[in-house]
Amino acid sequence: MQSVDSHLFLIVGAALFSIGLAVVLLKRHAIVVLMGIELMLNAVNINLVAFSQYDPDRIQGQMLALFVMVVAAAESAVALAIVLQVYRHFRTAQLDELNELRQ
């Protein structure tokens, strides 16, 4: 089974990271910003896995990617709970309308 050139994985990872960064910077709905963060974490995981296939005995890259996934799941659960409370408090989830610390 012939494998793919690993530079291509790195380039796909770089493009996905840039798209995720653009989503975080451009969008103003809080949940879409969270989606951008997920995209960036996935791009980093692609890089880790691409390098990890040259280390079949210890697969350190894949283990780190596994822990990144679990932490990302925990992060998104807590972040969505916070977004839900913000929405209940301000009746909106658009980030540039949240400009008060207290109400």
Binding site: V4, V12, I46, Q53, A65, L66, M69
Partner: peptide, 21 residues
Amino acid sequence: VAGLFVLASADFLAVAQIMIY
């Protein structure tokens, strides 16, 4: 991304990606 994981010979991680994400 899960498909890319399979092509980078990380099959467990691909299944975990689908199940977790």
